[in-house]
């Protein structure tokens, strides 16, 4: 009798445990953590940045509890598909190629891509000017695709796992240029390591490569979650969006 009681109470407690976790709706969000100022890991190991603040603000707007999961860029889409988390908020550009693997919400900011080089260096941004020059990009980003697809052949494209590794090689003098998101580069040239570098050339926004801005990725077919995010985004635009934005940029980043 006693034994049966323990077993049944055990069963009961497990049942309670499972139902409790089902009720407390936690949304797992994949973030990158190596893409300042959008996503970075602080000295004390905490995540911070525009993406992180956006994620937290959106979760607050939706009234759900969120768990942020750090994931390297290379595996960020596969891990979403493998259900390691339910959404990606990692400054991901909305592109046709990615749409084949994941669904996107509306954009939460827009951003052009630009070149930086050493201050005063004699460079020209053109097919001929870039010939034989080394350009560092983060592997698999829209910047990578743009350079590969447009300036292509003659350029020595070096691809890095993280943006920070590209900066290391720029500092070491192994690279003539780094090509990346303008906001990200802005942060770098404003920092101590990047003070010797400056922007050069135009801002690139070609939708063929850069898509329709930066959105939140969800698993294919997860329209309900995408809808929730869109609604939260719309509400945030009327309220807390600018407060989050002001912390990082003193100009509009939402676009139209």
């Amino acid at each position: 009798m006693k034994k049966r009681l323990t077993i049944s109470s055990l069963l009961l407690s497990t049942a309670l445990f499972f139902s409790a976790s089902a009720f407390a709706e936690t949304l797992r969000i994949g973030v990158e953590g190596a893409y300042p100022p959008f996503s970075q890991v602080d000295k004390d190991g905490k995540l911070s940045g525009f993406d992180i603040d956006m994620a937290n603000a959106l979760c607050k707007e939706m009234g759900v509890e969120c768990k942020l999961i750090k994931q390297d860029w290379d595996g960020i889409i596969p891990a979403l598909i493998a259900k390691k988390y339910d959404a990606i908020i990692a400054s991901m550009s909305i592109t046709e190629e990615r749409k084949e693997k994941v669904d996107f919400t509306n954009h939460y900011y827009k951003s052009p891509a630009r070149f930086i080089h050493k201050k005063g260096a004699d460079h020209e941004i053109s097919q001929a000017g870039l010939k034989g020059k080394s350009v560092g990009v983060q592997r698999g980003t829209v910047s990578d695709k743009f350079i590969t697809g447009t300036f292509g052949e003659g350029v020595d494209i070096k691809r890095y796992g993280t943006q920070e590794e590209a900066y290391l090689d720029l500092n070491a003098g192994r690279l003539d240029f780094v090509f990346a998101d303008a906001f990200v580069l802005l942060e770098f040239i404003g920092s101590d390591n990047g003070k010797d570098y400056e922007f050069i050339g135009d801002s690139y926004t070609d939708p063929k490569y850069f898509g329709d801005g930066i959105g939140i990725a969800v698993r294919k077919g997860d329209t309900e979650l995408a809808k929730k995010f869109n609604m939260a985004l719309e509400n945030m635009r009327k309220s807390s969006y600018d407060k989050v934005r002001e912390k990082y940029f003193d100009f509009d980043v939402f676009g139209e």
Partner: peptide
């Protein structure tokens, strides 16, 4: 492959990042 060289593994990483087909 981790220091920008495109060896076999580096090539696989480029393929993966281009097509999301690990």
């Amino acid at each position: 492959g981790v220091i920008t060289l495109v060896d076999l593994f580096g090539a696989a990483k480029i393929l993966n990042s281009r097509y999301y087909a690990p």
